[in-house]
Design a protein around this nucleic acid. Sequence first.
DNA 1: TAAATTCTTTAGGGGACTCTAACTTTAGGG
DNA 2: CCCTAAAGTTAGAGTCCCCTAAAGAATTTA
Lengths: 153, 153
Amino acid sequence: MEISKREEEYLEAMYLLYKKKGIIRIKDIAKKLRVRPPSVVDALKKLSEKGLVEYEKYDRILLTEKGREIAEKTYSKHLLLMEFFINILGIPPEIAEEDACQFEHYVHEITAERIREFAKYIQEQCPYVIKQFIKEHIEKKEKSEDTSKVEEV
Amino acid sequence: MEISKREEEYLEAMYLLYKKKGIIRIKDIAKKLRVRPPSVVDALKKLSEKGLVEYEKYDRILLTEKGREIAEKTYSKHLLLMEFFINILGIPPEIAEEDACQFEHYVHEITAERIREFAKYIQEQCPYVIKQFIKEHIEKKEKSEDTSKVEEV
DNA sequence: TAAATTCTTTAGGGGACTCTAACTTTAGGG
DNA sequence: CCCTAAAGTTAGAGTCCCCTAAAGAATTTA
């Protein structure tokens, strides 16, 4: 059974809402994914048919075991990419967030794993070089703060 | 005017075909993007309306200046990502190709630029560490060579 | 507890991208 | 030069994901 990129995003959003609030509401999913509630209902019906979500209308919404697994896998890639973009490359968090939000759905396991290993390796083998790289670019960034275009969420 | 990810892919494919063969044919675009010829015709009509492609039915196909610029920008990101995945992370080329093909359409300019700078910096500052990292992982890879799936284009 | 507000759902529809089947044009071999 | 095979095109339809408007259910508040 195929899971689309968008479905993965729905699962991830639900997973995070559950973790944060203990309850998953249509309007919160809608807000997180910047869609209207009817789109969320559509998505829930499809995800429910695929056995990734427990959904009965007007009832509480839950991820199934399978749904949660997919969400966790996706979210762990998200965290990994964020860590890499911010702590190794020194990308501004808002930009890193947007890049991670896309790449997390495409990156192969092997690439994600390699990024993880690389980050660890490089931070152990030459921490000062990394620190220096970050320092240079963070400073450069702040001088031109106003020219950087941050897309507000 | 919005250019979708998919449209960018069409432009990039055409750009590469032109560079390689000097002529852009529907069936070659279709092959590269793994779609059927009618889908390509649809895409060409839309791209033509947007002024990114010169297209008259049964006539030769060309990118406009604007179309070429977009394709080049995308393709340069592709090359950059490939370089990073392969030479820094030691990802197998086929995997790197697939990851790059997706990420190139999403990555922010600032991230792409930072990756470029990082690769340069790290290779200058601690080339041996990189070499060692690659070596360890390339070796690991070759043992499981037969399990990798290479998609021919 | 009735009324008002908020949340969810349904109905109906649209855009982007894809496909198959069938038709038209082009190009190359006889 | 014609005729066939290959390439390109059109028509019609499907999937995915989104929307607005309006109706229905749940919750809050007076």
